[in-house]
Design a protein around this nucleic acid. Structure first.
Lengths: 278, 278
DNA sequence: GCGACTTTGTGCCTACGTTCACAAGCGGCT
DNA sequence: AGCCGCTTGTGAACGTAGGCACAAAGTCGC
């Protein structure tokens, strides 16, 4: 067979490549025909689509903002508008976590927040370890409380001897060789990789060794991990390239075609009053 | 009661909310009888699924690595393994951009790189402006050349008077009020928002005013933009929450149920050779 | 207490993305 | 030269996600 297979990417048999769009819902062998219409409470968050989970996180943020402004209840129409999705999708997303709305009225902000937090596992804190204390690592370490509470950064790692022990955002930096020990001690559940690409896989391996099963990877590398580990990647270059693709598409698409509703020529692409509202 | 999200959420009629998973293929008004009898055949070549575009960017990076190691040709099997996808998907993705492989042999690395760059619009440089020079902004400004060349950061903005004129990563910081002028002068095509959430929408508005049609948003806010503008968002909190969801699912899923094939404690991550082959 | 109105929750249908499987095409071997 | 085996490119099957539209269910007004 092909000459592939020796030592490279495939050299690690027990691992599976990690893609961002990994399966989230357990394979779920197509249940014996959806014959279980009983939307009982018993049927846990069994099959929430990944895309829905991502949106739930957005809803949660919007809801938190509403709570701060003392909004007590909200309709799917309002919430969906604020979250940038259509209302049917929002209702379906919410239906995945249960029925907490009141027909004819809407949803109670407080209740919805609690339920989304429950489903997202935010009721118990998740310790985060950041590896690679460069520019990005610094930014992440200081990000601190995120949108309120939730993900305390409890460990920082780097290889630079000069950084050892130096506190960043209140946490002293440890050497990456200590990842297993420190992560275990601090019960880290989520590892964030912000190292240069060359070091990413090695760091990832150490995190996995330490028992970390969820990794957020900022390094532009495709990590190889055991299939029990969940990896999400945030890839700057990819994001920019996707945008670049759109620019390109626009460039050799719009000019010839009149379809564009607004004059795109370098002028104000904005219809009136795009100015800051506030 | 349902006091609606007054000022903030619902106040901007002429805008469309931007979601990450935006439509990439032309909107295609398919539904609603409309006056367009032709379903669309000519628009053919331009229908690359967004997901495929994201993967193409990954392939490009992998291919660049291969070129550096003097690999001249590669099969779909090898490339897909290195990119973490299955080979059929890879071939289909490549087929969207044309037929550049040789049956029985594989793809020429050089050719593939050129073609992907062409499709992603990387042949012409895209000027990037970064707004919000905090920790993250610094990191972005210094990120510089990304995976080789491609996206020169040519403008930086902030509101902090102390930063005005201070060079970060070689570029002096300007005031956000100058966004329209500076962006126009430097032909910025991509704007990156790395400001605190409260400032994000205002900054976004200014970028749009300046004619920027592609925005990468790091602020945890749902931006409202005209539909001609493409927004992608990178949301740390959402990513962490998605991972948290996985942790939670695992916690009340695995213990009771078997599911876990391997003992998770101290997995064998086999930290051997992280190296990739030549 | 009852009807009308409002908004949720969801079944169904469409579209999209992924995977499979195989014919077509190409190079190498004999 | 002609056959053989390998790998691409893609049509079709499959599964998932999105959106519409409506019945269910609750509130408010009278």
């Amino acid at each position: 067979m092909a000459q592939r297979g020796q030592s490279d990417a495939a050299g690690r048999p027990p691992r599976a490549p990690a893609e961002n769009a990994a399966e989230i819902t357990t394979p779920m062998p197509a249940i014996g025909g959806n014959g279980m219409p009983a939307p009982g409470l018993r049927d846990r968050a069994r099959a929430i689509p990944e895309a829905a989970v991502a949106r739930l996180a957005v809803y949660l943020r919007v809801l938190s903002g509403m709570r701060e402004q003392a909004v007590a209840s909200v309709s799917s129409e309002e919430l969906s508008a604020a979250a940038g999705v259509n209302s049917a999708k929002l209702r379906k997303d919410l239906s995945y976590i249960g029925s907490y709305g009141t027909r004819g009225v809407g949803y109670e902000v407080e209740v919805l927040i609690d339920q989304i937090e429950r489903v997202l596992g935010l009721t118990r804190e998740q310790s985060v370890a950041v590896v690679g204390i460069g520019n990005l690592g610094h930014a992440l370490a200081n990000y601190g409380g995120f949108p309120g509470r939730g993900f305390p950064v409890t460990a920082l790692f780097d290889v630079d001897p000069d950084l050892m022990g130096v506190p960043v955002g209140g946490i002293p930096v440890d050497h990456i060789d200590d990842i297993p020990a420190v992560c275990a001690a601090r019960e880290v559940t989520i590892g964030v990789i912000a190292t240069p690409p060359a070091a990413a896989q090695a760091v990832c391996d150490r995190l996995v060794q330490a028992g970390v099963e969820c990794i957020l990877n900022f390094a532009p590398v495709v990590l190889q991990v055991p299939e029990t580990v969940e990896v999400r990647k945030v890839d700057l270059a990819v994001e920019l390239q996707i945008l670049s693709f759109h620019v390109a598409r626009r460039a050799d698409h719009a000019p010839a075609d009149d379809a564009t509703p607004a004059p795109r020529v370098d002028g104000v692409a904005a219809p009136r009053g795009v100015v800051v509202r506030r």
